[in-house]
Each structure stands twice: as C-alpha cells, then as structure tokens.
C-alpha cells in the first residue's frame, strides 16, 4: 500500500516509466548485442562528455537561441492574425485556405529552397522555425477567438465598453486557453523543425551534431545527444505547462493530440 501511495505523487509515475524505459534499453542492448545499440549505462556515462564539451554546448545554445527567436516572432505575428481571423469572416476566408494548403508541406523541407534564397546563415533557420510555429499558433488563436461567448461581448457592449477595451478585457482572456494550447503545440513544433532543419542543412546546431557523430561512428555520443534533445523537449513542455496552468487555471484542461513532424 505504501508503494501505491508513492506512485500517486505527481512526477513519480513519469520517473518510474523513464527508469523502466532505461531498463528495457539496457536489456535490448544486451540481447541484440549490435554495435549500433550501445548499452544505456555506457550512453549515460558519456553524457558528461557531451554536456561539458564547450563546443557542443555552444552549438546547442545557438540552436536554442534560433528556436527562441523564431518562436517569438511567430507569437508576435501569428497570434494576432489568428485572433483577427477568428473574429472576421472575411479575413478567415482569405487566409484560411492558404494556411490549409501549407499545412501538409513539411516546413523543414523548405530549407534547401530557403537557403537558395537567403543563404546558409541564421536567417534561413529562424525563418523555417517561424513558419513551422506559425501554423498551429494561427489555428488555435483563430479557434480561441471564434469560441468567445458572444453573450460576453454583448454584455460588454451594453455596458458601453469601447471596441478596443473589449478586445483586451473580453476577447483576449476568453481566447487565452486555446492560444496557450497553440503555444504548447508551437513549442513542440519549434523543436522539431529546428532539429530537422539542422539535419537537412548540416551547417550547425544539434541536428548537425547528431549526424556528425553518426558519420564519425561515435555511437555513444549520438545516443547521448538524443537524450539531451529529449530532455530539452521534456523540460520545455513541462515548464510551459506550468506557465499555462498558472495563467489559465480557470479553464478546463484539455489533453490534445500533440502534432509532430516538420
């Protein structure tokens, strides 16, 4: 019974499952015995090597910087657009079909073309991340703005609230839960697009690190880097969830399908 009590503490079940995964990994490595699957223990042992190597740290840092920049620009442009689309049929009618068209296009796949236009520098990478993040942000912001209870708006109008204040006092807070959900998906997308675009462009960044290690047959480093990326993804998501819950504690939680891919 104490075990059950322990398992119901928040944070413990994911930890347990993580340990279970590591154990499974260790077992699989021992059973398969191929070079391409080093044991979990050896990979964990090589983690410090990856984390404390200044060069790779710099790369990872640069990647995260680009990701943050792309995300920030997307937030500043896509959310307002989405909100306007949610409130105006005309705007939605214009941009909607265009966005639906872009949806199945892998954003990271645009890397070669974008690099052709804008060169191999940071701009291309940030642009691609911006494109990847914008789509879920627009979609969810639109949904959030559209779902605003009209009666709230009417009450505000009846109270004599001017249009500008209505936007900030009624529409934005009402749409916030959905916008936050869009941001959560956006963060996941940013990470995915970042990693994949770097795998394709192979100039710098974590994606590049991964494949460099692969090319140089440094198998343990490959897995260690994957763990680092995974940890970053997990941490970003967990952090954001905290923020989201704080800001929108009054809304109902939604377990949405987290979109993946590029």
């Amino acid at each position: 019974m104490r075990l059950r009590g322990l398992l119901s503490l928040p944070g413990v079940p994911p930890l347990v499952s993580l340990l279970a995964l590591l154990a499974l990994w260790q077992l699989a490595a021992a059973v398969l015995g191929i070079e391409g699957l080093p044991s979990a223990s050896s990979v964990l042992a090589s983690l410090p090597g990856v984390l404390f190597d200044l060069e790779s740290l710099a790369e990872i840092g640069a990647s995260l910087e680009r990701m943050a920049l792309g995300f920030a620009i997307a937030v500043a442009t896509a959310i307002p657009l989405g909100l306007v689309m949610g409130r105006s049929r005309a705007v939605a009618g214009f941009f909607g079909p265009l966005l639906t068209l872009i949806y199945p296009v892998p954003k990271a796949a645009l890397m070669p073309i974008i690099m052709l236009w804008f060169g191999v520098g940071d701009f291309s990478k940030v642009l691609v991340i911006f494109l990847g993040v914008s789509l879920p942000l627009v979609y969810h912001s639109q949904a959030g703005a559209r779902a605003v209870d009209e009666k709230l708006v009417w009450s505000a109008m009846a109270m004599g609230m001017p249009a500008r204040r209505r936007v900030f006092s009624i529409i934005l807070p009402s749409a916030l839960p959905e916008v936050m959900l869009g941001c959560r998906v956006g963060i996941a997308m940013a990470l995915i697009v970042m990693v994949s675009s770097e795998m394709i462009a192979r100039q710098s960044g974590v994606g590049n690190l991964l494949f460099n290690s692969l090319d140089m047959a440094q198998y343990r480093t490959v897995y260690a880097t994957i763990l680092v990326i995974g940890a970053i993804g997990f941490a970003l998501d967990a952090l954001f969830e905290r923020v989201r819950r704080r800001l929108t504690f009054w809304a109902e939680a939604r377990e949405d399908a987290v979109a993946g891919g590029g």
Partner: peptide, 25 residues
C-alpha cells in the same frame, strides 16, 4: 497507469531526433 506516464515522457521528445539511432539499429 503504465501507459500514460510513458506517453507523457515520450510525447514532447521530437521523434526526428531518434532518426540517427533508428538508422544505427
């Protein structure tokens, strides 16, 4: 109880990062 925490841990990881490992295996 077994599946949900597992999914919560794995979902935020960009699966594309697993590609090199998959290639190795």
């Amino acid at each position: 109880r077994m599946i949900q925490p597992l999914v919560r841990v794995l979902a935020p990881i960009p699966k594309i990062a697993l590609y090199p490992a998959l290639i190795l295996i």
